[in-house]
Amino acid sequence: MMSYEEKLESKGYKLSTQANKRIFEAGVRTGNLIFVSGNAAKVEGVLKYKGIVGDTVSLEEAQDAAKIAFVNCLATVRNMIGSLDSMIRIVNIKGYVASTSNFTDQPKVMDEVSALAIEVFGEVGKHSRVSLGASSLPEGTPVEVEIIVEV
């Protein structure tokens, strides 16, 4: 049986091993929950997309950005506990989408993340979720994702 990390890799996603370089923690564990800080769509430390969804970033690009940001959240979990296979459940996913005032498809951006979570993790990937619009996000990322997982 493939590990969760192998399943992600089979879909083209590789978990980063980069260390947190922020003033705050990449993730905080309290009891059996890990709260992962917001992640952008960075690949090897570089933003894959920059801009505003509905203006310079398409829905499809935003969906890809959201999946990359989600995988970066999962990398934090793996780096904290050693293996994604130790996860009991993805409890919550929050997605922030830098979008124009008339863009209302934030849920469609995050639907791709939800689908990936369930496809890779099955029952463990079933989660609650919120999708929010924002006028801008750090460094110009079009999407930021944070998660809470039970371990």
Rank of each mutant, 00 (worst) to 15 (best):
D55N: 12
E150T: 14
L116D: 07
E61W: 00
I68A: 01
G27W: 02
V43H: 03
I118D: 14
G125L: 01
S86P: 00
E119P: 07
G125R: 01
V143F: 02
G82Y: 03
Y96L: 13
S136H: 09
M110G: 04
E25V: 07
V46P: 11
S83I: 13
A62F: 01
E60H: 09
V120N: 07
A65P: 11
K48T: 13
S37E: 15
L8V: 00
T17A: 10
C73S: 12
P107I: 00
E5R: 07
E5C: 09
V36L: 08
A75F: 04
Y13E: 04
L47K: 15
L59P: 12
Q18R: 15
I90W: 00
E119F: 01
T100F: 00
I148G: 06
A134T: 14
P138F: 00
K108N: 11
I90G: 01
G122R: 03
Y13Q: 05
T100I: 06
N32F: 06
S114P: 05
R22M: 07
Q63A: 05
T56Y: 01
A69H: 06
S10I: 01
S3D: 02
V145D: 02
K50N: 14
L132I: 06
A115W: 11
S99E: 03
L33W: 04
F70Q: 04
V28L: 14
A134Y: 13
V113H: 06
V149I: 12
I34H: 08
P107S: 04
E150H: 12
E150R: 15
Y13W: 03
I118T: 14
K94S: 10
V53W: 04
L74Y: 04
K108D: 11
S10E: 09
Y96Q: 11
M110Y: 06
A69N: 09
Q106C: 03
E119V: 03
R22H: 10
A69D: 10
N79D: 13
E60V: 13
D85L: 05
L47F: 12
V57I: 15
A115M: 08
E60P: 12
N92M: 10
S16P: 14
I34M: 10
N102S: 09
S131T: 14
N79A: 13
D111A: 14
K42W: 05
F70M: 06
I81K: 10
E119C: 02
L74E: 09
K48W: 08
V97P: 01
R89E: 10
I23A: 09
S37V: 11
S136F: 06
V71L: 06
M2A: 05
L84D: 03
G27S: 07
E144T: 14
A41G: 14
K11R: 07
N92K: 10
E123Y: 03
A26E: 15
V91F: 00
E60Q: 12
A134H: 11
T17H: 12
V71F: 00
P142L: 02
K108I: 00
G82A: 05
I147A: 05
L84T: 08
F35I: 13
G133T: 09
T76G: 08
A41S: 15
V53N: 07
S101H: 05
V124M: 04
V124G: 00
K67Q: 12
E25S: 12
A117P: 01
V71P: 00
V57R: 13
K7A: 02
M110K: 10
G38T: 13
F121E: 06
S16K: 11
V91I: 06
V91K: 06
F103G: 02
Y13S: 02
E139A: 14
